[in-house]
Amino acid sequence: MSAATSPPGPGLLPLLRLLQLASPALPVGAYTYSQGLEWAVESRLVRTEAEAAAWIGELLEWSLARFEAPLLARQLVAWSQGDDAEVARLNDDFLASRETAELRAETVQMGWSLVRLLAELDAFAALPGWRGRLLAIEAPCFPTVWSAAAAAWQVPPDQALAAYLWAWAENQVMAAVKAVPLGQSAGQRLLATLGERIPALAQGALALPEAAWSNYTPGLAIASCRHETQYTRLFRS
């Protein structure tokens, strides 16, 4: 059999599923949120490509990679091992970490949207009893549902975390392109710069013990609080 007609390698399907989860076309409404970036633009804290890189990069390193990503990594293990109590505990911890009403509403809305989408995908049946397990959680947040899909599709943890961080960074960059505004080329330069940091951040998140988790980002909390009462808005957070 020639190389052109040989069957696909066993690792390709999880990779394709991962690309599907990380795609901006995933219909969960992520594009409608800026997570405080819109207020930072309105208040002139972010006016340039360099300032957008600093704002997004610091949140990526000090919030996503030090709390959300290691929590998601722990949930991947819990889903795979059938430890639903641990999944629920981590879900509650993540919800408690959302410091404003709009940040909490964002993760819950995106979580439920992903639950509805997964209900329509036969491939998700690989995780036994997934629907009942998810619906047993009162308010499944987005990382909880996303990690369930990644576990069901047997995505390697390091790749799952890298893709999750990339998807978040891409959404933030697209928000900056619209709100600052920046050109499309500037957006690609930002993604290239942020992307270089993601492999190390993903590996660090996998190894970070829970006692060291932290999302202490007061600037984000202030931006989100101010955004809730901002007069004109393109984004929901």
Rank of each mutant, 00 (worst) to 15 (best):
M1E: 07
M1T: 10
P7V: 09
P10N: 13
L13F: 06
L15D: 08
R17M: 09
L21E: 02
A22W: 05
V28T: 14
A30D: 02
Y31M: 12
Y31A: 15
Y31Q: 12
Y33G: 04
Y33A: 07
S34H: 15
Q35W: 12
Q35S: 14
G36D: 09
L37F: 11
A40V: 00
T48V: 11
E51N: 03
A53Y: 14
A54Y: 13
I56C: 00
G57K: 10
G57P: 07
G57V: 05
L60Y: 00
W62R: 08
A65D: 01
R66F: 02
R66D: 00
A69L: 04
L71Q: 10
Q75Y: 00
L76F: 08
L76E: 06
W79M: 02
S80G: 01
Q81P: 04
D83K: 01
D84L: 09
V87Q: 01
N91D: 03
D92V: 02
D93I: 06
F94R: 02
F94N: 04
L95P: 11
A96L: 10
A96W: 04
T100S: 14
A101P: 06
E102V: 03
E102Y: 09
A105Y: 00
L118H: 10
D122H: 15
F124L: 02
A126P: 04
G129L: 06
W130F: 10
W130E: 06
R131H: 05
G132C: 04
I137V: 12
A139D: 07
P140F: 02
F142V: 00
A148L: 01
A149F: 15
A151R: 11
Q154M: 05
V155Y: 15
P156A: 13
D158R: 07
A162W: 03
A163H: 14
A163G: 15
Y164Q: 12
A167C: 15
A169T: 04
E170F: 14
E170Y: 09
N171Q: 07
A175R: 08
A176F: 15
A176H: 06
A176P: 02
K178C: 04
A186R: 12
G187V: 11
A192K: 12
L194T: 03
L194V: 07
R197Q: 08
L201M: 03
A202L: 00
A205M: 06
L206C: 05
A211G: 11
W213D: 05
N215Y: 02
Y216F: 08
T217M: 02
P218D: 04
L220V: 10
R226H: 11
H227I: 05
T229R: 14
Q230I: 07
F235C: 07
S237L: 11
